[in-house]
């Protein structure tokens, strides 16, 4: 109901780099090019807010419940609980999958990582005694799954009307030999020497979450972070567009009902 669609997939063009024959990747992208992105908010009816992010073969649903009364302790600031799950069929190993199964180590780590990133922007002091639950579900992980979770979760929080001082997006860069590969596919991730993942708060221009796996040269590492930030900023731009579109739709609807 009332969800906006982005029509055909939005293609983001990287800047600079000339397309040379050898620069083209398996899927025809340039090294600094993101996969086509599709976003949607407010598609889940029972959640306070929801967000969907799709980038290439990576598909993520995220729902936000609350703020609702916290059952546990009295806290002056609100608390936020994040739950990141990979579907059994997401094409990724190490997923605990089914509801009720305890989370895998990795999922737990990513959940706390997501919590950290989001908590840096959510104004929890406005929600005393309350909890906000963020659950993200990775339907399909075609590379860069976690970075996309950050993006989807931000969309969902914004849709839920939770007060935030920033919008966060995540992005991944893989290092393959000497080459930095933006937004790697699952195959590219598998052959990479190392990957760098960044959670980026666009307005404050701050890195809120950093993760590096594998092996990366120091210089490459620093460069990769910059590239990640640029990519995240692009995604943030799209997120804003998506949210504003949705907002217009809501206001129009309210205008009608108030008449």
């Amino acid at each position: 109901m009332g969800a906006i669609t982005y029509g055909p997939l939005v293609r983001i063009d990287g800047e600079g780099a000339k397309t040379k024959e050898r620069d083209v990747r398996e899927d025809g992208r340039r090294w600094d090019e993101l996969r086509p992105i599709y976003m949607r908010v407010g598609m889940l009816s029972t959640a306070t807010g929801s967000g969907y992010f799709e980038g290439g073969g990576t598909k993520i649903f995220c729902a936000v419940h609350g703020p609702r009364p916290s059952a546990s302790n009295y806290t002056i600031d609100g608390t936020m609980h994040c739950d990141v799950r990979w579907a059994q069929f997401s094409g990724r190993e190490g997923a605990a999958g089914r509801q009720g199964d305890s989370m895998s180590e990795e999922e737990r780590e990513l959940s706390s990582s997501l919590q950290r990133t989001l908590a840096s922007a959510v104004r929890l002091e406005n929600y005393p005694k309350c909890r906000i639950d963020v659950s993200a579900f990775v339907l399909e992980d075609g590379g860069g799954g976690f970075a996309a979770v950050t993006t989807a979760a931000s969309l969902a929080l914004a849709d839920a009307g939770v007060e935030m001082t920033d919008i966060m997006a995540g992005s991944t860069v893989a290092v393959i030999g000497k080459q930095l590969v933006v937004d790697p596919s699952a195959r590219e991730e598998a052959i990479a020497d190392g990957t760098v993942r960044v959670g980026f708060a666009s307005q404050r221009a701050k890195v809120t979450d950093l993760m590096q796996n594998g092996e990366v040269d120091l210089e490459q590492f620093r460069e990769a972070i910059k590239v990640c930030c640029t990519a995240s900023a692009q995604v943030c731009g799209l997120m804003k567009e998506c949210l504003v579109k949705k907002a217009k739709k809501w206001l129009k609807k309210r205008g009608r009902s108030e008449m």
């Binding site: 990582s113 950290r116 990133t117 908590a119 840096s120 190392g194 760098v196 890195v207 809120t208 979450d209 950093l210 993760m211 590096q212 796996n213 594998g214 092996e215 990366v216 040269d217 120091l218 590492f221």
Partner: peptide
């Protein structure tokens, strides 16, 4: 070389 990095804190 960097062989794994994580961040902490909000």
């Amino acid at each position: 070389k960097s062989c794994g990095a994580v961040s902490a804190g909000t």
